[in-house]
């Protein structure tokens, strides 16, 4: 299930936010080797203080298994600042209808293969569906996402291939990072849903059909 947590409702979801920062520490510091600041097992940066929205995937036991951070490209965001190398030091795109997605990650202790519930590609798809549906309701047409090649491959395989890239891939920690463009559209959401077999409202608790 997906929760969108921003500075308006953060007080209701403080436990989820702690777990999300812990997941980000495990992925971006431990696994990908990015130079990010980890304190008390939590990865946080200056952009977390700019009232972003977090799209958080929680499994049926209540564990945080995936997340993504969204910021408008009209204001300060990562590509306009710390990730400008990805854009070959060119100015970033700026549009009222484009959001930036960063710190997109999924718990890699999940099963790696297949699209069963709680697999990596299931959670990846769920986070994407949540972010795109939230975006469409907000009038957003496109997203630019900072991702690594593994995430890029997962997306290519799951009906969610980027339609383009900005700048060029750049080494970051143990991997490279790239800025991928995705349309925030019903068509893309339908493709991801088809691939992952997700038919239910991702913002509501999943009830298996057998008990419905």
């Amino acid at each position: 299930m997906i929760y969108v947590v921003d500075s308006l409702n953060a007080h209701e979801f403080s436990d989820l936010l702690i777990e999300m920062h812990q997941l980000r520490a495990r992925v971006f510091s431990d696994r990908l080797g990015w130079e990010v600041e980890v304190k008390n097992g939590m990865e946080r940066d200056a952009f977390d203080d700019l009232n972003p929205a977090h799209v958080i995937s929680v499994d049926e036991t209540g564990r945080v298994v995936g997340c993504m951070r969204l910021l408008p490209t009209t204001g300060p965001h990562m590509l306009s600042d710390v990730f400008s190398c990805l854009l070959d030091d060119e100015p970033p795109i700026r549009s009222a209808r484009v959001w930036e997605a960063t710190r997109f990650c999924v718990d890699t202790n999940l099963p790696g293969r297949g699209v069963a519930r709680n697999s990596i590609s299931y959670v990846t798809s769920e986070v994407m569906i949540g972010a795109f549906e939230y975006g469409i309701a907000a009038g957003i047409s496109d997203a630019v996402a900072v991702i690594d090649p593994v995430m890029n491959r997962v997306m290519m395989r799951s009906g969610n291939a980027p339609y383009g890239y900005l700048g060029s891939p750049h080494p970051m920690g143990k991997v490279t990072a790239l800025a991928a463009l995705m349309d925030c559209s019903e068509e893309r959401i339908a493709r991801i849903r088809d691939f992952a077999g997700i038919r239910h409202d991702v913002f509501k608790e999943f009830v298996p059909e057998a008990v419905q």
Binding site: T74, I93, R94, S95, A96, R97, V98, D142, Y163, G164, L181, D183
Partner: peptide, 16 residues
């Protein structure tokens, strides 16, 4: 580049 990428650059340029 894709025509949608062209569209995004145009939209960004308009707004800037």
């Amino acid at each position: 580049i894709s025509h949608r990428t062209v569209e995004i650059h145009l939209r960004s340029a308009r707004e800037k």
